[in-house]
């Protein structure tokens, strides 16, 4: 089980959290201007890297806030845990 550090509550067990997938995917400002391929890329295509991964977690059974975690997808080590820089799931990093 992962031990995840919530930036607001501190370290808690993984069972308190919900996973939100890859971080930094911004919703396109004008979806109707996109081609089908660009829209598919936004909706479905993922980096899914082997190694360092920036991802979203939600402290579902705690403060219920979303935040961003950097985790190694091979060792599962959590390297960093940060509050979101803005409210829409897109981080500045």
């Amino acid at each position: 089980m992962l031990l995840i550090s919530c930036p607001y509550c501190g370290e808690r067990a993984e069972t308190e959290f919900a996973y939100g997938g890859e971080a930094g995917i911004a919703r396109p400002k004008d979806p109707s201007a996109l081609s089908d391929a660009e829209w598919a890329d936004y909706l479905f295509m993922r980096k899914n890297p082997r190694g360092a991964h920036r991802e979203l977690w939600n402290h579902a059974q705690g403060c219920r806030r979303w935040f961003e975690v950097e985790r190694d997808t091979v060792t599962y080590d959590i390297v960093a845990s940060d509050a979101l820089r803005n409210g829409n799931g897109k981080s500045e990093r």
Partner: peptide, 12 residues
């Protein structure tokens, strides 16, 4: 729930 390549998961 999480993505991973580690060929192991969480006990819960």
């Amino acid at each position: 729930a999480y993505t991973g390549y580690g060929q192991r998961g969480s006990f819960h």
